[in-house]
């Protein structure tokens, strides 16, 4: 493999890392609160707000039903507003984050739903405020599930980032398509797939280790 190709691999790898890392970070920061709100405003929960819950749910579903490739081009004006450009790695981060936020929200909501209602009731019987129920009971008890959810999100983002080539975002997936497919270099394609397999494996294993570390059930 030529050194030129090697540096191409390295650059693409870094681009993937940037896209997944930043989009994942934003999705975590926004998605966790979103999941919390979805969960606690649901009927029968500590901060029941049916209207807010249904509205948020609709928005989340709408974003999640839009195919990523369409979402990416549809929000170009927003991307340009935020990053100043509509092409490149930075520009790819915006749609990736926007697609991942509702996904994380639903995963976190699911993890919180798994927490035994009896624990919430016990905390309420002790005189806990809704915020205390969230901080002291729901989040710590759902933590293994939350970490599992974030791991799933990262793995999904790695897959989605392959489509970022459509807006010139670069990354490993884009390398595989441009060189492996369009320039008939199957060994590049194979190498890309191999690297992605290893990266996904590492992310999943790391997530599993952390999740079991905090799981005392």
């Amino acid at each position: 493999m030529s050194s030129e190709l090697l540096s191409l691999f390295w650059d693409s790898f870094v681009e993937t890392l940037i896209m997944v890392g930043i989009a994942g970070g934003i999705a975590t920061a926004v998605g966790i609160p979103l999941g919390l709100i979805l969960s606690i405003t649901a009927p029968g929960n500590v901060l029941e707000r049916p209207l807010l819950n249904r509205t948020l749910g609709l928005v989340v579903n709408a974003v999640r039903s839009t195919p990523f490739i369409i979402l990416m081009v549809a929000i170009i004006p927003l991307t340009r507003l935020i990053t100043g450009t509509s092409i490149g790695t930075a520009a790819a981060v915006v749609p990736l984050a926007i697609a991942a936020i509702p996904f994380v929200g639903r995963l976190i909501e699911g993890a919180l739903r798994e927490v035994d209602a009896g624990l919430v009731e016990a905390a309420q019987a002790m005189g806990a405020t809704p915020l205390q129920v969230v901080r002291k009971v729901l989040v710590p008890e759902a933590l293994p599930g939350i970490i599992n959810g974030l791991t799933i999100m990262l793995v999904n983002l790695i897959g989605f980032s392959a489509m970022a080539g459509a807006v010139g975002g670069g990354g490993l997936g884009d390398l595989g398509i441009r060189y492996g497919y369009q320039r008939f270099m199957p060994e590049v394609m194979a190498m890309v797939v191999l690297i992605l397999i290893v990266v996904v494996q590492l992310v999943q294993t790391f997530g599993d280790v952390v999740a079991s570390r905090v799981d005392h059930r």
Binding site: D116, E121, A122, A125, M126, G127, A128, V137, P140, H216
Partner: peptide, 22 residues
Amino acid sequence: ALRAARHEIGMIFQHFNLLSSR
């Protein structure tokens, strides 16, 4: 005021309802 009053009422449950994370 209800939360404050609840500090004076302890409760135990059939399924214990202990936090597994603590």
